[in-house]
Amino acid sequence: MRILILCTGNRCRSQMAHGILKYLCPSIEVHSAGVRPATEVHPLAIQVMSEIGIDISQHYPKSVDQYLNQTWNYVITVCGGARENCPVFNGTVANRLHIGFDDPDAFTGSPEELLTEFRRVRDEIYKELQKFAKILES
């Protein structure tokens, strides 16, 4: 089973989803990428993931271009930008799925408010991917 998770920058949501899905389904091959990749994974994404025991500190943003000729069981978009700008895959994509989440990086506020927003989005991603993992297991 091969799953690709797409976001615009591959900086927050797709990185958190990548870590969570790999944690929930360790035998599945999971990758994440962006249609316009950022230069680094957001430090708060790394922090809030470590709070739940998932280490994404070695992750880095990648371009979707490197995955276009590969075969995927699922390509999952986690933001509207990636959904709207999802490129054409030359390889086989068995299933396309959109599970959208707010962009915690777009939120403005105090450091504590930002951290709260990242935790909220992380928890939403976890909840939705738990449901998805149950579908994969059945």
Rank of each mutant, 00 (worst) to 15 (best):
A45V: 03
V48H: 08
L136P: 03
Q58R: 15
L114N: 13
G53N: 09
R96C: 00
Q70G: 02
A82C: 06
H31Y: 15
R122A: 08
L129R: 11
D123R: 08
E112A: 14
P61Q: 09
V35C: 13
H31N: 13
G34M: 08
D65N: 14
I56C: 04
F107H: 09
F89G: 06
P26F: 05
L114G: 04
L21Q: 07
V75R: 09
F101E: 02
R122V: 10
W72N: 01
P87W: 04
I46R: 04
E128Y: 06
A106C: 10
H42Y: 10
F101Q: 03
Q130F: 02
I52E: 05
V48G: 08
C25F: 03
V78E: 06
V35T: 15
L4T: 10
N95I: 01
D65W: 11
C12H: 11
A33G: 07
N95W: 06
T92C: 04
K134Y: 09
G100S: 14
Q130M: 02
D102S: 13
S32T: 01
V30L: 12
D103V: 00
K22G: 06
G91D: 02
H42M: 04
C79L: 08
T8N: 14
H31M: 12
R119E: 00
L24A: 08
M1A: 12
A82L: 10
V35N: 08
R122H: 05
G9P: 00
L6T: 05
Q58M: 10
E128G: 00
Q70R: 13
C25S: 12
G100M: 02
G80V: 04
A94T: 08
V75L: 09
Y23I: 03
F101P: 00
K127P: 00
G91F: 04
H59D: 14
A106Y: 11
S110I: 09
P26W: 09
V48Q: 07
V75P: 07
F132M: 06
F89P: 01
I135G: 02
E117L: 01
T108L: 12
L97G: 07
T92W: 03
N10R: 10
V30E: 13
V93G: 04
L4N: 02
N90Q: 14
G109L: 12
F132G: 01
S110C: 08
D105E: 12
R83L: 13
E84V: 13
L24T: 02
V121H: 01
K62P: 00
C86S: 11
Y67Q: 03
A106Q: 13
D123V: 01
E51R: 09
I99Y: 10
K134H: 06
P37E: 06
A45S: 15
I56K: 05
K127M: 11
C79N: 09
I20G: 05
E40P: 00
T39W: 13
R122Y: 06
D65F: 12
A38R: 03
I46K: 07
C7G: 13
E124R: 11
I54K: 08
T8Q: 14
S27E: 15
S57H: 07
P111E: 11
S110Y: 08
D65P: 00
P26D: 04
K22N: 05
L44F: 09
K22A: 11
G53A: 04
F118S: 01
S27N: 12
